[in-house]
């Protein structure tokens, strides 16, 4: 049975698209059939992060409106055979999506894939609500920072009221993913600690992704970080998060960068 996951946050710029690409790729690297769906109509970026921007022909809006078949719009990843992308439209506005149309597309995707990962737009409006509508599971991406935590709280409220599961009286499984975490700053009391964020939002923790230059490098290259550098700290954190998403029990830790002698000597200087 396919699982529909929404990657959401309320606030923009916290790492939803990075997370969608990394989680999607990590699942597919483990042999699962995965599609990542960009719901950010008008401001698509998942194609760019996945390195598929030059191969987009049709998009989610075309499929929802019946102008293209799903198979025509899906972009197969060149590196991982079992990974596909359904891009968002760059030219249309968010009203181009209808709840009925989205439902039809999600149903069709669930037949073809094991995992349907929906990358939500920022905000709490229609686009974000359509992205979460069919979710069985939600990954709430949060930075250890006040505005991000507040917005995540709003999104958690929406997950409990606006999803199909919620209207049926069922629960959406919610997971907290803390991104851009700096262990040193948190230890020094300069940044909210993981425990603070968990306590405030009171949803279980899926993982802690450390702040890392590897994330920008991955986006520069158009490759999910789990592919561009699987041994890097953020990649290992995403692999762990994916194992937890699949139901495995993995001890929680904040992976650190593995630094060579050169890195150890000069790595700190730059920051």
């Amino acid at each position: 049975m396919a699982r529909v996951v929404v990657v959401t946050s309320g606030k923009g710029g916290v790492g939803k698209t990075t997370t969608t690409a990394a989680i999607g790729a990590a699942l597919a690297q483990g042999g699962q059939k995965v599609v990542v769906v960009d719901f950010d109509v008008g401001l698509r970026n998942l194609d760019l992060i996945m390195g598929a921007e030059r191969r987009v022909v049709f998009d989610l809006v075309n499929v929802v409106q019946g102008d293209a078949k799903l198979a025509q719009a899906l972009v197969r990843d060149k590196r991982i055979e079992t990974l596909s992308l359904l891009p968002a439209s760059q030219t249309r506005d968010k009203d181009a999506l209808s709840a009925e149309g989205v439902s039809r597309v999600i149903e069709e995707l669930k037949e073809k894939f094991d995992w349907v990962i929906c990358d939500s737009p920022a905000g709490i409006e229609k686009g974000a609500q359509l992205a979460m509508l069919h979710a069985d599971t939600a990954v709430v991406v949060t930075n250890p920072e006040v505005s991000s935590v507040r917005d995540s709280d709003r999104i958690i409220g929406l997950l409990d009221s606006k999803t199909i599961r919620a209207t049926k009286g069922e629960k959406v499984e919610k997971h907290l993913l803390i991104t851009r975490y700096d262990l040193g700053r948190a230890t020094r009391g300069e940044m909210l600690k993981t425990e603070d964020v968990i306590e405030i939002l009171s949803i279980p923790l899926l993982g802690i992704i450390p702040e890392s230059e590897e994330v920008l490098r991955a986006s520069n290259l158009g490759s999910p970080v789990t592919l561009s550098n699987p041994d890097s700290a953020p990649a290992r954190a995403y692999f762990d998060a994916v194992r937890r998403l699949k139901g495995e029990t993995v001890a929680m830790s904040v992976p650190g960068e593995k630094k060579g002698l050169f890195g150890r000597l000069f790595g700190r200087r730059v920051a």
Binding site: A186, G189, E190, K193
Partner: peptide, 13 residues
């Protein structure tokens, strides 16, 4: 100056 995190935590709560 160092421990601004407890302030953030309390404001959020």
């Amino acid at each position: 100056r160092r421990s601004s995190a407890p302030v953030a935590r309390e404001r959020l709560q």
